[in-house]
Design a protein around this nucleic acid. Structure first.
Lengths: 354, 354
DNA sequence: CTGTTAGCGCGTTCAT
DNA sequence: ATGAACGCGCTAACAG
């Protein structure tokens, strides 16, 4: 909701701003009725050519811009699509949003972007706002069931990205996380590693959970054990400071570990810095693989081996799915797309010494 | 505009979705008139307590969500703020958007985000869309005068970020670019460098131009010359490939250069990679300073000395300025804020050898 | 305190 | 081919 202090849109402010031109103004200027002007500009129905031109000229001259609110009220659809992401400052979500925006704007839709900071409460508030503005659809990286349930319950087409809340009736576009994790871990195994650690996060959601699962599966398939202390789950940590502390303890207690799989870009950054801080040479004393390939990973020396996800595309595909549902006015059969990740081998992974 | 194919919002689709509850529904369910229901929910005017409760209960039960379109049409303000950035995939703009969103959502406004890809045409289209949706205000990183002029001409409060188009009547929040460039170059001079190159971009805008200016000024003040070949302006280059080529040529023809100032994060990345590609050791064979401090700059070895800009804050401040204008319904006296950059010294800069 | 009335700007009947 | 009239959902003014 707009701040209570918000004032009128454009009428009689003390400043000299003239009221925005309305269809009535255009009609009067062109000497026709409002309906005719509407048809002339909208391109529907019959309008004499010279009238049309006159109306268009008037509209141009007056700087007429049709009012979406009015159009929306008529039941036309708002042209707005709500997008809810967890953290815009995280490159992953920024790129996701960019992909969404790209597809949306190409289709003539506008993106309303809300950052929920992984907070279900804020996500719910965002959902309400989208409902209120009659968003034609909503794309989100779910942090809970609330938002999706509310939206779907109101008949708004929803597409979930990267994660799935489990709520039925919405499209889901995700990465094959288990497979990606396997790619990473199998790569390490192939190099000869046997003591492989994982630093993971957000295991309350399927994305993190599946990466952990893939890690375990790969080890199991290779006949390797997964000591509990090889798994560092930072999901319940309190702040970055706490994470660093736990990470330090993790390495202190795992001198046997020769390689680490960081289950997302945030974890990768954390691990990289911890490794650097303790003077552990990468890759000679510890190999590193990241899930999610960010720009810095190819800038550093050695480059970080990473599981590349088509993030921009992920957003684009989700938007496409959603737009298709909007176009069909069909809240029914929701689609599901799983995109394939790809391993990019760089210098951070080598055979263990010895 | 919404795709022409877009269909009705939520009435009689073939699916079973029930029409969204309207104020009338709530009123009927509560056994009152629409106005009373409106007051009860809005908290204005007089309403008997027991009636209020009954209405609120009904609203809750029906999952009533007020319709912004209708409210907007009444002249209430849309609660929407348009934001136009040049490239969401660039961390700089992503963080800027994040800062804007943070402030906006705290004030109860929604951010409509459009990526114009530095294209004036697309920016103009975005501006039209914002006008059409009755955005209460617009924040943008201008790529020309068109968008701002159109908006300001229509009486919409506008705040420009990072760059200034020169159009009067809008707020401007920027970084002291000349000062930042001086910080960078003076640092190099203090280290003993005399042949300092600059790789710059987007000199068609004040931001790039002022950084170039600061570079020149710092050299001049130190009594140093600025050979033309020490300045590489990539503004007119065609694609990244071309930029790389020019960069290679630049270093080939400037063997005397002992330090380079990269005028933004994109240039810094380019320079870093070129230096790496040609096996030039940083900093021993060439020092590097970047304008804009990204995450990777502290990950790499050596870390990149950078001019840090308060990007998130920049977005936040711009949003604050805009909100103040919206609150005052005042398109008049536009404000201007200049934020100070800060030099962060890391390993990429040392005294020249010899 | 409450209900009735009017109108925001637009598109869409339905008559002409 | 054009115009008059209605209503989308809501709130502000006015009666009661």
């Amino acid at each position: 909701m707009a701040n209570g202090a918000a004032v009128r849109g454009g009428s009689s402010g003390s400043n000299g701003r003239r009221a925005r031109a309305t269809l009535r103004d255009v009609a009067e200027a062109a000497g026709t009725s409002r309906s005719t002007a509407s048809r002339a500009l909208g391109g529907h129905g019959y309008v004499a050519d010279h009238i049309r031109e006159r109306v268009q000229a008037a509209a141009e001259r007056l700087g007429y811009v049709p009012d979406v609110s009015a159009r929306t009220l008529k039941g036309r659809g708002s042209g707005l699509v709500g997008v809810l992401v967890s953290d815009l400052r995280n490159q992953f979500y920024a790129e996701l949003a960019a992909g969404v925006e790209h597809t949306l704007s190409a289709a003539g839709y506008q993106m309303v972007l809300v950052d929920d900071h992984s907070d279900d409460e804020r996500a719910a508030a965002g959902a309400r706002a989208f409902l209120a503005m009659r968003a034609d659809g909503v794309l989100l990286t779910p942090v809970g069931r609330t938002a999706t349930e509310n939206l779907v319950g109101h008949g708004v087409p929803v597409a979930e990205m990267d994660r799935r809340s489990g709520v039925r009736g919405c499209d889901v576009v995700s990465i094959d996380n288990e497979r990606g994790a396997r790619l990473a871990v199998e790569h390490l195994i192939a190099l000869g590693h046997r003591d492989i650690g994982i630093v993971v996060d957000e295991t309350q959601w399927d994305t993190g959970r599946n990466r952990l699962k893939g890690y375990r599966a790969a080890l199991r398939d290779a006949g390797l054990a997964t000591p509990r202390r090889h798994v560092l789950d930072l999901s319940r940590s309190e702040g970055v400071g706490d994470q660093r502390t736990q990470l330090t303890a993790f390495f202190d207690g795992n001198s046997a570990v020769t390689a680490v799989f960081a289950a997302n870009n945030v974890m990768a950054e954390l691990v990289w810095q911890e490794l650097k801080r303790r003077g552990a040479d990468v890759p000679s004393s510890c190999s590193l693989v990241s899930f999610d390939d960010l720009a810095w990973m190819k800038m550093v020396e050695p480059g970080v081996t990473a599981v590349r996800q088509p993030v921009f595309d992920l957003g684009g595909r989700a938007a496409e799915l959603l737009l298709a549902r909007i176009g069909r006015d069909d809240a029914g059969r929701a689609g599901s797309v799983v995109l394939e990740p790809e391993l990019v081998v760089r210098g951070s992974t080598v055979a263990p010494k010895g």
